[in-house]
Structures are given as structure tokens and as C-alpha cells.
């Protein structure tokens, strides 16, 4: 194994992640879309671990501290790359902008802003997203009212709200 493969292992792991994700979503029937993403990520993660462990000898191995330092860097790189891939493919499925482009593509004479809202509006989006959030156990529903608990999405909502305040200087919309 060359230094090149060892140094680029996070990129190779991403390639493996993409390959496994696509194969599993297309050819393994019991694997849904989200399960295929997890399966792809875990496979790539194991690949990084395997390559790193197989390089625990000179000339790759300098010291234990260096080994762990490189391992952390490679795992972080792989995780960031995987997030980018996930965000990219998820855009095609959920992005409002892509849906708007599709609506415009279907209309040969173009659409006014009001025309756009006939088929695709806030009410439609809210209903769609509530179903998805409930299905993924991110919110609770008692038959009439929705409530939220501390989950990945609620933590993300709070973090993004703080980042909006930090980066864009927008007021935080959190009630006490």
C-alpha cells in the first residue's frame, strides 16, 4: 500500500459509501432510502478503520499519538464528505427550489407567483413535513396537537437558530 492510498483513504471510503448506498437502495428490497444511507456510511467508516489498523507499522506508523491524530483527522474528513453527499442527494428529494423548478418545467407559458402557490404552498409543505417528522419519531402527535421532544432535529433547530444569530445577526426566535 502506498502513502497515496493511506492519505486519501477518506476519499476512497466516500466512494465505497456511495457505491454501497446506491446498490443497497436499488437492489436490496428491505433497505429503504434512509437505511441505505446509514449502511453506506457505516461501510465507509469500517473501511477507514480497517485501512488505518493495517497501517500500524513503519513507515506509516510513527508513534501512537500520531496514529490516533491521523485516525481522528481521517474519520472527521470522511464524516464531512459523507455529510456533503447526504446533503446533495437529499436536496433532490426534499428541496423546495427543485420542486419549484419542476413546477415551472411543467408550465409551458410560465407561472405567476400566485399560480405557483396553487399547487405548492405552505399548507402543503407543512402537512408533508409533519408526516415525515412524525414518521421519523422527531415529533409526537396525540391525535390533535403536535409536541416536540429533545431529538436530533430539535437540537439542530436550536443550533441553527443560534448560528443565524451569530453569523447573520438575526434575532433568536426562542420563547422563555
Amino acid at each position: 500500500m502506498t502513502f497515496l492510498v493511506y492519505s486519501f483513504q477518506s476519499v476512497f471510503a466516500l466512494g465505497l459509501n456511495i457505491l454501497i448506498q446506491i446498490l443497497s437502495v436499488r437492489y436490496i428490497h428491505c433497505t429503504g432510502y434512509f437505511k441505505s444511507i446509514i449502511l453506506g456510511f457505516v461501510t465507509g467508516f469500517l473501511f477507514v478503520l480497517l485501512i488505518s489498523l493495517s497501517c500500524m507499522h513503519p513507515p506509516y506508523f510513527q508513534s501512537t499519538a500520531d496514529f490516533f491524530s491521523i485516525l481522528i483527522v481521517d474519520i472527521l474528513t470522511y464524516s464531512f464528505l459523507s455529510y456533503c453527499y447526504f446533503a446533495f442527494i437529499n436536496t433532490s428529494v426534499t428541496a423546495i427550489r427543485i420542486r419549484l423548478l419542476q413546477e415551472l418545467d411543467h408550465a409551458s407559458d410560465g407561472l405567476s407567483f400566485e399560480d405557483l402557490l396553487i399547487n405548492y404552498n405552505s399548507k402543503f409543505i407543512i402537512q408533508m413535513r409533519l408526516v415525515r417528522l412524525k414518521h421519523n419519531h422527531q415529533i409526537n402527535f396525540d391525535g390533535k396537537r403536535y409536541s416536540v421532544r429533545l431529538t436530533f432535529v430539535s437540537i439542530m433547530a436550536l443550533v441553527i437558530e443560534f448560528m443565524k444569530f451569530l453569523v447573520l445577526g438575526r434575532k433568536m426566535r426562542l420563547s422563555k
Partner: peptide, 13 residues
Amino acid sequence: SPSLFIVLNIWNS
């Protein structure tokens, strides 16, 4: 993001 907007508003309730 609609999902985060929904969760934030439910959180505030």
C-alpha cells in the same frame, strides 16, 4: 427550513 421552522415553533409552544 420548513422542518426546522415547524420544530422550533412547536418547541416554543
